[in-house]
């Protein structure tokens, strides 16, 4: 285990699923790193492959899915060749996962306490006796009032926000090095969303966690991310530090996404929200040219051919033929 390298390193990860029309390439050769204590947001609209990418890391893909990668390493350990048994040791212990729907992510017929304690008992068999104490402690840590009482309650006793806090507590039971959060605030009320986000950032800082956050919401990403990875059509189309991204988004899709953000700015008041015309491309079969070209206002004949490479400048990567030419010509 190296102390300097990234916690998670993904190179050329692909995921494909069987479909009656041919294989669906949900994720096409994506690469990104998550550094120690870093928050990386994968942003994109539904069906762009962001959740698949996250699930592929722990090999929690649906049956029939095939994943491949040049590298998939976590704390220096190769997850690609790791046996299922070893992956089970890592899941819930070194990597905690938070899912979107706190209502359905918890088992309705087990108590909150049991669901928290079982992770700890699974991964810390020598400290079984402390599972209860640890669970109460973690429920307190995520800001759940009267944690002792909650231990014996069932998920349906808790509000959506509290349930999501319980899910977060569950992910933190074994002090993981990294948390993968798949749309953790999407199913919640706006006010609760803000609270949960604040909690995630706070916990991340307190426990020195790395966080891989999957979201469709750039506003969420802008508040928590150190780095933003934009996915479109199964590919990474842009990858930059949050600052660089919001200062100068380069991919036309990323710029389009930013234009879609609702704003309270008086200048834009009364104007209709922007939309990106068209729909997401089909992921079936092989790819030629840019995945975004049919919806892009700047597309030209050069966008139709070959595979558009990721161009990189100062750690800002963009998959667009015009990316840095445009930047450099300014």
């Amino acid at each position: 285990m190296s102390d300097t390298g990234p916690v998670l390193s993904v190179r050329d990860l692909t995921v494909s699923l069987p479909h009656r029309m041919g294989r669906v390439h949900a994720v096409r050769e994506i690469s990104f790193d998550v550094g120690r204590g870093e928050t990386v947001c994968i942003v994109g609209e539904s069906g762009c492959g962001k959740s698949m990418s996250a699930m592929a890391i722990l090999n929690l893909l649906p049956r029939g899915a095939v994943r491949n990668a040049a590298r998939l390493s976590f704390l220096g350990e190769d997850l690609l060749s790791a046996k299922e048994k070893r992956l089970r040791e890592i899941r819930g212990d070194r990597i905690g996962v938070i899912f979107q729907e706190p209502l359905t992510a918890l088992n309705p017929s087990l108590t909150i306490g049991e669901q928290l304690m079982e992770v700890y008992r699974r991964h810390r068999p020598s400290r079984q006796g402390q599972a209860r104490e640890r669970a109460v402690e973690m429920l307190g840590q995520v800001g759940i009032p009267s944690p002792e009482e909650r231990m014996t309650q069932y998920p349906h006793h808790l509000s959506g926000g509290l349930r999501q806090r319980a899910v977060i507590a569950m992910a933190l039971m074994c002090e993981p090095a990294m948390i993968i959060a798949d749309e953790p605030t999407t199913a919640l009320d706006v006010t609760i969303q803000a609270q949960i986000l604040r909690l995630l950032i706070d916990l991340k800082n307190r426990f020195g966690l790395s966080l891989l956050l999957i979201t469709h919401d750039l506003a969420v990403a802008s508040r928590v991310a150190d780095r933003i990875v934009v996915m479109y059509g199964g590919q990474v189309v842009e990858d930059a530090t949050t600052q660089a991204f919001f200062n100068r988004p380069m991919h036309p899709y990323a710029r389009g996404l930013l234009g879609c953000l609702p704003s309270l700015d008086p200048e834009t008041k009364g104007k209709p929200l922007q939309v990106i015309p068209g729909t997401v491309p089909s992921l079936i079969g092989d790819l030629t040219g840019c995945t975004f070209r049919e919806r892009c206002t700047q597309a030209g004949p050069e966008c139709d051919e070959g595979i558009i490479p990721l161009r990189s400048l100062d750690g800002h990567r963009v998959r667009c033929v015009r990316a840095f030419g445009e930047a450099l010509s300014r």
């Binding site: 089970r88 899941r91 819930g92 899912f99 729907e101 359905t104 992510a105 992770v119 699974r122 569950m170």
Partner: peptide, 13 residues
Amino acid sequence: ADYIRTAKAKGLN
């Protein structure tokens, strides 16, 4: 169900 995915993500056998 989603809670099965959760259970798998917890590393349970």
